[in-house]
């Protein structure tokens, strides 16, 4: 048996796993993505460090908006693009003048 064929046979199981794995969808959602959010405690800086750049800001950055998708695993962040393609939730964070979270809401953009 030639070396090329032997190498191919050795690689076959890995290749099969790769092909099978490509069919399976892994949930991208994180169950604890929003666990840090707590009114009266979470700071604006903590929110930005945990969630990154907001998709929109209002009232000179006092109110932040983030776009979220969801799956069996939990929530995942989505980047801003025209329209709300694949966006299932809009996370809204309203801070006070000191940068402390005053109120927040997770708004469902799609019908359940």
């Amino acid at each position: 048996m030639s070396g090329g064929v032997k190498n191919l046979m050795r690689a076959a199981p890995a290749l099969a796993l790769l092909l099978l794995g490509a069919c399976a969808s892994t949930p991208a959602g994180q169950p604890d993505l929003l666990a840090f959010i707590e009114d009266g405690r979470t700071t604006r800086e903590q929110a930005l460090l945990a969630l990154g750049e907001p998709s929109a800001t209002y009232e000179e950055g006092r109110i932040l908006a983030f776009r979220l998708g969801s799956d069996k695993g939990g929530y995942f962040l989505l980047e801003k693009q025209p329209g709300f393609l694949s966006v299932t939730y809009s996370l809204m964070l309203a801070f006070d003048e000191a940068g402390l979270l005053r109120r927040h809401s997770l708004v469902a953009l799609r019908a359940p």
Binding site: M92, S105, V107
Partner: peptide, 10 residues
Amino acid sequence: REDVLLKLGE
């Protein structure tokens, strides 16, 4: 404005 944004989202 804050009420509206927290109710309807971005």
